[in-house]
């Protein structure tokens, strides 16, 4: 396996393309030239930084460092889930539901895959553990955020119906059944779509990367299939868990709808 190493010159040529695009948007007055350049600079800095961190991690492969890296990734993903909610839970729950379900789904699935399917020695070998966890977190994050957002939005919109049903003697479980199903479905849809389109409409990024790195296509495909299934499982369990936890939190022990547990929406 061999990779053609890219020189600074090669990257500068690619950067020129972005600068040219920025010039064009400036001329067309799209008003995105500045943010395009800033985003470009961020890409360089963030990726270089993470490259250095990963290099250091690979050089000092110790369980403690790998675990720390994993926790930092989880913390950031938890924040992302919270930031994507229009009506988030007040207090620790706003962060906690997303982070807890991602911990259970993405972490559990990664550890399971490392110990039983991929099987590197040691099982937490950072070269395998960190990219796997990264892909799982990235995808479960989207699924959980979508599911939670849909749930809180619909419950808020349908609050009169929910309370009307409670007043007639329904339990909160049956009064919110359709809304919970809809929320879980919207969390799962991107993954299902990605699986259905894999290889036909798009060549998945990980597989493409492995092929570029010289891995035989069939080997790369096997890894991609594994990842796809792990992502589906992680996202599915995560979204279902998050929607269930969040719906429980929306009602109290006397099954009263407690929208006061959501933070008010800031407009503007």
């Amino acid at each position: 396996m061999s990779v053609i190493s890219l020189s600074a010159w090669d990257l500068s040529l690619a950067a020129l393309l972005v600068v040219a695009l920025a010039g064009l948007t400036l001329w067309a007055r799209l008003g995105v030239g500045r943010s395009l350049l800033i985003a470009g600079v961020r890409t360089v800095l963030q990726l270089l930084l993470v490259g250095l961190v990963l290099q250091a991690l690979f050089d000092h492969a110790q369980l403690g460092w790998v675990a720390l890296m994993a926790l930092v990734m989880l913390a950031i993903a938890g924040y992302e889930v919270m930031a994507r909610q229009e009506r988030r839970f007040a207090g620790i729950w706003g962060y906690g539901i997303g982070a807890a379900t991602m911990f259970v789904s993405a972490f559990a699935v990664t550890v399971l895959a490392l110990t039983t399917m991929v099987g590197p020695t040691p099982w937490w070998e950072p070269q395998y553990a960190i990219p796997l966890l990264g892909m799982l977190l990235g995808n479960t994050m989207t699924g959980i955020a979508l599911g939670l957002d849909r749930l809180t939005q619909t419950v808020w919109r349908e609050r009169r119906v929910i309370e009307g049903r409670l007043a007639l003697g329904d339990t909160w479980v049956s009064a919110t059944a359709t809304m919970r199903r809809e929320a879980a479905r919207s969390g799962l849809m991107p993954t299902i779509n990605a699986m259905a389109a894999a290889g036909v409409v798009s060549l998945p990024g990980m597989m493409t990367g492995q092929i570029l790195a010289g891995v035989p296509p069939v080997e790369a495909v096997k890894y991609q299939i594994l990842i796809m299934f792990l992502i589906a499982a992680g996202t599915g369990f995560g979204a279902l868990g998050a929607v269930w936890l969040a719906s429980k939190r929306l009602f109290d022990q006397r099954s009263r709808l407690r929208l006061d547990r959501l933070r008010p929406v800031r407009r503007g």
């Binding site: 009169r160 119906v161 009307g164 409670l166 007043a167 007639l168 003697g169 339990t171 099954s255 009263r256």
Partner: peptide, 19 residues
């Protein structure tokens, strides 16, 4: 239990909800 209570102590609002 809350559902039993609400069946026996029935709240009917000015605008009833239909789903």
């Amino acid at each position: 239990e809350p559902p039993d209570w609400r069946r026996q102590v029935a709240y009917v609002p000015a605008e009833t909800a239909w789903w």
